[in-house]
């Protein structure tokens, strides 16, 4: 479903190119659960952002569901992205001014889903995540684990094929983190959602079906289970 060919990302510093991503090629099939690991500054998040089309590579070819992303205009990319990708962040990034319900609903609004349909979909999602009772609360009134749950619910509401998670458990304690990872596994196994996560934790990485280790912008090792 995803194919990166010789992707590089660099910044011009003086006369030198400072590589963040250095010639990475990577293929991800539908249904995979990939964990990306590596020390700080190894380019994990940048790679994830490029996959998520939030960032442009400097060079290289990027195919997503067999379409050449590197040739697309902003608008097409945005349409593709809206249809297929959901994002989960370390810092949750919920909108403080919106309630749980409204936060989950927002992506549907941007996809022009009708009001009645939205209602059904959000209700369904609240039910599935057991947060019906919290739907009228604001993010500030929730614990970190609950906020991340809402963040995941929001990422999944539009039924994405690919879920991108940037250190989803980084701000959580170990028990909360475990719950989130269990949820990811279930989504991957039962719903067939392809997941790519960036993580620092060996333990969380092992939930995946493949672990990719990055170092200084290159793939150092890659192993499948």
């Amino acid at each position: 479903m995803l194919s990166l060919q010789h992707i590089s990302k660099y910044y011009q510093v003086g006369g030198n190119k400072n590589f963040v991503i250095n010639d990475i090629s990577l293929d991800v099939d539908e249904g995979e659960f990939v964990s990306i690991m590596g020390p700080s500054g190894s380019g994990k998040s940048t790679l994830l952002n490029i996959i998520g089309m939030l960032d442009d590579p400097s060079t290289g070819y990027h195919y997503f569901v067999d379409q050449p992303v590197h040739q697309m205009k902003e608008k097409q990319r945005s349409a593709l992205y809206k249809q297929y990708i959901g994002f989960v962040f370390q810092a949750y990034h919920l909108i403080d001014e919106l309630t749980v319900y409204e936060n989950i609903e927002t992506p549907l609004i941007y996809q022009d889903v009708k009001g009645s349909e939205r209602k059904a979909m959000v209700a369904d999602m609240l039910d599935r995540f057991n947060i019906v009772g919290k739907k009228d609360l604001f993010p500030a009134q929730l614990s970190g684990g609950q906020q991340q749950l809402v963040g995941i619910a929001r990422a999944l509401i539009a039924k994405p094929k690919l879920l991108l998670a940037d250190e989803p458990t980084g701000n959580l304690n170990s028990k909360q983190g475990e719950e989130i990872m269990e949820l990811f596994r279930k989504l991957n196994k039962e719903d067939g959602v392809t997941i790519i996560q960036v993580t620092h934790s060996e333990k969380n990485a092992e939930y995946g079906s493949r672990i990719i280790n990055l170092l200084d912008g290159r793939v150092e090792s890659s192993k499948k289970f």
Binding site: K75, H93, D96, T106, Y110, Q111
Partner: peptide, 16 residues
């Protein structure tokens, strides 16, 4: 800025 970023990630276009 955070809100703007989140909204964009969730699919908001500049126009919206």
């Amino acid at each position: 800025s955070k809100e703007i970023g989140v909204r964009k990630v969730m699919g908001a276009q500049r126009k919206q």
